[in-house]
Amino acid sequence: MPGTAARAGTAPAETRQRMRDGTELLLRTWLPDPQRYPEPLGTVLLVHGLAEHSGRYPHVAALLCGLGLRVRAHDLRGHGASGGPRMVVPHADIYVEDLAEIHDAAVRQWNELPIVLGHSMGGLVAARLATARVRPIRALILSSPALALRISGGMMTMHRLLLALAPRLRVPNPIDARLLSHDPEVARAYRTDPLVQSTISAGVLETFLRGMPQAQADAPRLEAPTLLLVGGADRIVDPAGSRAFHDGAPEDLCEMAWFDAGYHEIFNEAEPLRGEVLAALSGWLRRHLGTAGGPQAQAKP
């Protein structure tokens, strides 16, 4: 269960949290420097993308901890070091339900509403949590969110066939690591990472196909300040989905930072773009959430 945490610049504390169905998820937790921040200024729940794991985000956690925020990330079920069959889900809403349980445990532990930051599929999961009002949150940050995909008619036909006949059958993951970042080292590290999954199932793809239109339809219901960080050259997800979500959300709540040349993993882009993206993230947090010393949002009892 959640408990200890690691400071920024150190290896994260690793704990496990049991979901209602018995599946145990790995949690990684970082804390800001207690000399600078005796009390953290807030909590970020970080949700990673399809096939990867939360251990790929130490530089993002370090930036957030440098702003005085504690960070908790989990490996999605069937991913990384979490339990559950690899890349198989019991139903299309399970990732949102798991995030709600992670949220509840964090609120109990720290008595404050969290900021939720999701990348790619994690962005879709985070957007669903917020727009469907599954749980109240302090703010929402979406990095290259999977709010639209480019899927051919042939791929859709194959998906429907597999979903009907073999929803748990794992097939090769179509993600091309060369399209993640302009930095070739990112592609190399992704391909050689033993915790990155190389397959996908029709059941997992269905979480996208059901979740994306619902998140878009619910965008007007957004209640928390929201930042989208979007790579205009993304070929893993369709960045047009981020534009549609931004346009559908309340104008006074939703802001978008668009990086024309950015590929999918904008937190892992080649410099100087990576630095520009991280600066946009930290600048938005400072302006909107008072992480340089402003008030925290306390959870309602």
Rank of each mutant, 00 (worst) to 15 (best):
P172F: 02
P172L: 04
P172E: 03
N173Y: 00
N173I: 03
N173P: 02
P174E: 03
P174R: 08
P174A: 07
I175F: 03
I175V: 15
I175T: 10
D176G: 02
D176C: 06
D176L: 09
D176S: 08
D176F: 01
A177G: 03
A177S: 12
A177H: 08
A177I: 01
A177Y: 04
R178H: 11
R178Q: 12
L179N: 15
L179P: 01
L179R: 13
L180W: 06
L180Q: 09
L180Y: 03
S181T: 00
S181H: 04
H182E: 11
H182D: 05
D183N: 12
P184T: 04
P184V: 14
P184K: 12
E185P: 00
E185N: 05
V186S: 02
V186F: 07
V186Y: 06
V186P: 10
A187R: 03
R188N: 08
A189T: 15
Y190T: 10
Y190V: 07
Y190C: 04
R191T: 13
R191P: 02
T192N: 15
D193I: 10
L195I: 07
L195N: 10
L195A: 10
L195R: 11
L195E: 11
V196L: 12
Q197G: 11
Q197M: 15
Q197A: 15
Q197E: 15
Q197R: 14
S198A: 13
T199E: 10
T199F: 07
T199W: 09
I200H: 00
S201H: 07
A202W: 01
A202Y: 01
A202V: 02
G203A: 10
G203L: 05
G203C: 06
G203E: 04
V204R: 00
V204P: 05
V204Y: 00
L205M: 15
L205T: 13
L205P: 05
L205K: 09
L205W: 08
T207A: 00
T207D: 06
